[in-house]
């Protein structure tokens, strides 16, 4: 099966009450092996709920969720499913368990009963992959937010998952920490071909993905390449989202009657398009 993650007609609500019912209704989504999917959406649009469904922390009331072909509601294969999907959460502090960095990274493999020598190898490899090897003996509470988040990523990597789901991993970081974490995510994708689902509300982060899924009120409002998605400036604004600044500028210029192409995402592309347009005039 090429899809690592598969949601099939999923219906889910937090409460038993009738009025709460169907927060997510009949949602279907699949993520191909090796792809990098960004999930966008305003606050309360159901992004974290999807993360919880994927991780098996919550089970759907209707429909099924598959991780690497394993149904998350299959109790006998629970660990196997969890091992294959690495979750990284928003608050750096609340996902680090141990008092020493390398022991925290070892936590997942320890739970899986991996041999000590193999744990050692995986811990070293994971810390190197996130560029934190020199901090292996440090106490996590002495690290910066970006460093903590990289330790959290290493902790997930050490389980050797097939895919990673990151729920707003940069939301609580300063610009520098945000840069560190994004660079780490991109490196995982290049070096390991890791399947990545990045939940974010930063448009520039989403623009780095191969595919963007926009959520609104528990349903998929748009799904496509960053270029397709971000060229629909008006629609994004209706969904309560910003667009990347270069895209916004181009859109405004177009409305002012200047002839410019669609789907501009980066500053470079924006500069080129604008200079070309003015040269022609």
């Amino acid at each position: 099966m090429a899809a690592v993650i598969e949601l099939e007609h999923v219906t889910f609500s937090y409460g038993e009450e009738a009025e709460d019912q169907g927060f997510i209704e009949d949602l279907s989504l699949s993520v191909e092996e090796g792809s990098f999917v960004a999930v966008l959406g305003h606050n309360g649009s159901g992004k974290s709920t999807i993360a919880k469904l994927l991780s098996g922390l919550k089970l759907p009331q209707k429909g099924r969720v598959f991780v690497c072909g394993i149904d998350t509601s299959d109790e006998e294969r629970e660990l196997e499913a969890k091992k294959n999907i690495g979750m990284v959460f928003q608050t750096p502090d609340n996902q680090i368990v141990a008092t020493i960095v390398e022991e925290d990274v070892a936590f997942g493999p320890e739970n899986l009963g991996v041999e000590p020598s193999e744990i050692r190898r995986r811990v070293d490899e994971a810390l190197a992959a996130v560029g934190m090897e020199e901090y292996k003996d440090h106490a996590p509470n002495k690290l910066s937010g970006g460093q903590k988040q990289r330790v959290a990523i290493a902790g997930v990597l050490a389980m050797q998952p097939r895919c990673m789901v990151l729920d707003e991993p940069t939301a609580m970081l300063d610009p520098r920490g945000r840069g560190e974490v994004m660079k780490t995510i991109l490196r995982l994708r290049e070096q390991y071909g890791m399947t990545i689902v990045l939940i974010t509300h930063y448009m520039n982060e989403a623009a780095m993905a191969d595919r963007v899924v926009v959520m609104d009120d528990g349903r998929v409002a748009a799904d496509g390449t960053p270029r397709e998605i971000f060229s629909q400036v008006q629609k994004l604004k209706q969904l309560g989202l910003d667009v990347p600044q270069p895209t916004e500028l181009i859109d405004q210029l177009k409305q002012a009657g200047i002839d410019l192409p669609d789907g501009i995402l980066t500053v470079d592309e924006c500069v080129q398009a604008v200079t070309r347009a003015f040269m022609e005039e």
């Binding site: 919880k52 991780s55 922390l57 660990l79 969890k82 091992k83 999907i85 690495g86 979750m87 959460f89 608050t91 502090d93 609340n94 996902q95 368990v97 390398e102 022991e103 070892a106 936590f107 997942g108 493999p109 320890e110 739970n111 899986l112 009963g113 991996v114 041999e115 000590p116 744990i119 050692r120 811990v123 959290a152 902790g155 997930v156 389980m159």
Partner: peptide, 27 residues
């Protein structure tokens, strides 16, 4: 309490299921 709930979720996602069958990095 908020931290405790989030940590519990994170631990569960990292396959924590009590001491049974657990190995240790440092012997």
């Amino acid at each position: 309490f908020h931290r405790a709930f989030e940590l519990a979720d994170a631990m569960e996602c990292r396959c924590y299921h009590g001491g049974k069958g657990r190995t240790r990095l440092k012997q």
